[in-house]
Structures are given as structure tokens and as C-alpha cells.
């Protein structure tokens, strides 16, 4: 471990969410983290709950009845929203994090053009897709049923 020689000034977990006047990509990063954790929590409960189908129709319908009602529908919709964001943003990240869509090294001439500027149109398209999925999902959840 590195030895501290002065007053500690790491931002800590506050720095994950908020460290100053940051840009939109910082908030996408935070949202990706939060939706990921939420999806994982839901996934663990989902595995346990849906395992009841192995015990036949009675057990299945009993466990499904336990999670019915408007509150659970809203909760499931939130899971769908988290999935839509995490999936589309995740695809963007999967490509960007192996160097696709971040641009080639360039001569830094002011005003600087960075990988974030290369990503900006991709981010906009991705967020429009997320919004579309959220709207279509919302209609399916609450209107078409």
C-alpha cells in the first residue's frame, strides 16, 4: 500500500457520483453502475422465484401470485427500463472500450477534439434508442394490456 504523507483527500464514493462540474459521460457511467447493480439484485431474486416452475403448476402459480399487483408491475417496469439502458449503453461501451468509435490519435490543436466528441453522436443515437424502448415497453406494460 502507498503510504500517506499528508492530509487524505481522495473523493471516495462521492467521487463516483459527483466530483465537481462533470460532463454527461460521467452520469452515463453512474447510471450504468446503478442499473447494473439493480439488475443483478433482481436477477438473483428472479432465479430463486422462477425455480418454482420445476415443482409443477401449483407451485408456479402460487409464486407468481405472490409477486402480482400494481406495485410489482411498476417494479418490473423499472427492471425493463434498467435493462433497456444497460443493454444499449453497454453495447456502446463494449465497442468503445475496445477502441471502436473513439477515433484515432490526432494532433491536439485547440479547441481539442477528444474521444468524447467522437462518442457524442453515438451517445445521442443510443439514448434515443433507450427512450424508444422505454416508451414501447411502457405502452406494453400499462396500455396494451
Amino acid at each position: 500500500m502507498l503510504e500517506s504523507r499528508g492530509h487524505p483527500n481522495r473523493l471516495g464514493m462521492r467521487g463516483w457520483l459527483f466530483g465537481g462540474r462533470w460532463g454527461p459521460d460521467r452520469y452515463l457511467y453512474s447510471l450504468h453502475r446503478i442499473t447494473g447493480l439493480g439488475l443483478l439484485l433482481y436477477f438473483a431474486m428472479h432465479i430463486i422465484l422462477t425455480s418454482s416452475r420445476a415443482l409443477g403448476q401449483g407451485a408456479w402459480e402460487e409464486s407468481m401470485a405472490r409477486v402480482s399487483g400494481p406495485l410489482f408491475v411498476i417494479g418490473e417496469y423499472l427492471v425493463f427500463v434498467a435493462f433497456a439502458f444497460h443493454a444499449i449503453n453497454g453495447l456502446r461501451l463494449a465497442l468503445a472500450e475496445v477502441g471502436f468509435g473513439v477515433g484515432k490519435p490526432i494532433e491536439p490543436i485547440y479547441p481539442y477534439r477528444t474521444a468524447l466528441d467522437e462518442q457524442r453522436p453515438i451517445v445521442v443515437v443510443a439514448m434515443i434508442l433507450v427512450a424508444l424502448l422505454i416508451v414501447v415497453g411502457g405502452l406494453d406494460f400499462f396500455v396494451w394490456h
Binding site: 462533470w22 459521460d25 460521467r26 475496445v98 473513439v102 490519435p105 491536439p108 490543436i109 477528444t114 474521444a115
Partner: peptide
């Protein structure tokens, strides 16, 4: 452990774009 929050590239005063370098390194 880079998750492409992109802050390094935003604040770099010399336009070095470390976020780009890290993604290319990871590739």
C-alpha cells in the same frame, strides 16, 4: 477499471485524450 466516464479527456489541458489512449491500450 476504466469505465469510460471520460473525465480525464475533458479536463486534460493539453488535449492528450487519455480516455482514448486507455481504450486503444485495452484493445
Amino acid at each position: 477499471r476504466c469505465h469510460f466516464a471520460g473525465e480525464c479527456s475533458r479536463v486534460c489541458p493539453k488535449g492528450v485524450d487519455p480516455a482514448k489512449a486507455i481504450q486503444l491500450l485495452r484493445r
